[in-house]
């Protein structure tokens, strides 16, 4: 369980997070959603101790972030930030190999090598294993980065917009793999998701943020509703259903496409605020 108490954050004089209290359940796939600038990345970076906590307290499985050594935390959580560009000229397999570094500190054992092979296979990277990172596509590099995070083998996985550079097939595969990790091996995943439908399809628990605050939290059924989403993104949004899960229709609003398309007859007026 990740427990966040009274977490506030400022950059310069600008308040970014306001007194956040949040508990993230273990063994769940948690999706963090919200508009640009809501503070999702900041929250994730604070939890991942990539930035020092200014005010408040964060605890991960009973380990207080402020007192636990960073090497110990590397065995409890693996993180992939939003900026994944790596300037080093490493081979894909070497990068993924560094994911095991917290376990062996320079002397890899057979178990570490096996974990690297598994991670490479899980992300379709075997054919690219010996290519340099600056000689593969952006999406492939992103998958290598993800594989490194996987190889770390921690109970918690914190990901910031992991679908960023991935095509449809790889996005779906990644979400399926995350879900599998959660349901199959009881691990916990917290991921910022830009495209809400991936959250709708795969997440167990959704946290919605806006302006540095948590505005809604719960299972997809209760968070991915027309009123909540429309208020969250300040734009009218329609929610349908698909395979018994919410399907968010946000790509256009009915009358935006012009005359050949029918106006929404009963657009609920309370959404337009």
């Amino acid at each position: 369980m990740i427990r966040i108490n009274g977490l506030s954050h400022h950059i310069g004089a600008a308040p970014i997070l306001h007194d956040i209290d949040l508990t993230l359940p273990r063994g769940k796939l948690v999706a963090l959603i919200g508009p640009n600038g809501a503070g999702k990345s900041t929250l994730l970076r604070l939890v991942a101790r990539l930035e020092p906590v200014q005010q408040g307290r964060i605890e991960i499985d009973g380990l207080d972030l402020s007192t636990t050594p960073t090497e110990r935390l590397a065995l409890a959580m693996a993180v992939m930030g939003q900026q994944t560009h790596i300037a080093s000229r490493l081979r894909v397999a070497e990068l993924v190999g560094f994911g095991r570094w917290p376990h062996h500190h320079g002397r890899p054992r057979p178990a570490d090598r096996a974990a690297v092979r598994q991670a490479l296979a899980a992300f379709d990277l075997e054919p690219l294993a010996h290519r340099f990172l600056d000689e593969v596509s952006g999406g492939q590099a992103q998958r290598a980065h993800l594989a490194m995070t996987f190889a770390q083998g921690t109970d918690w996985l914190l990901l910031d917009e992991p679908l960023n550079n991935l095509d449809m097939a790889h996005s779906r595969t990644l979400m399926a793999r995350l879900a599998d990790l959660v349901r199959g091996s009881g691990r916990s995943v917290v991921t910022v998701v830009h495209e809400v439908n991936y959250a709708a399809a795969w997440a167990d628990h959704i946290v919605a943020m806006k302006d540095g605050r948590i505005v809604a939290e719960g299972p997809p059924e209760t968070v991915l509703t027309e009123p909540v989403l429309s208020a969250l993104y300040d734009t009218p949004i329609e929610v349908s259903r698909h395979d018994d899960r919410p399907l968010v229709l946000h790509h256009h609003w009915h009358d935006q496409l012009g005359s050949p398309f029918p106006k929404a007859a009963d657009a609920p007026s309370h959404l337009l605020h």
Binding site: T70, E71, A74, M80, G81, I86, A87, F98, W101, Q152
Partner: peptide, 16 residues
């Protein structure tokens, strides 16, 4: 080598 990967990745891997 890990330091060259950037502060974020290095911290994530538990490197001071």
């Amino acid at each position: 080598a890990i330091l060259s990967l950037g502060d974020q990745v290095a911290t994530g891997l538990g490197l001071s």
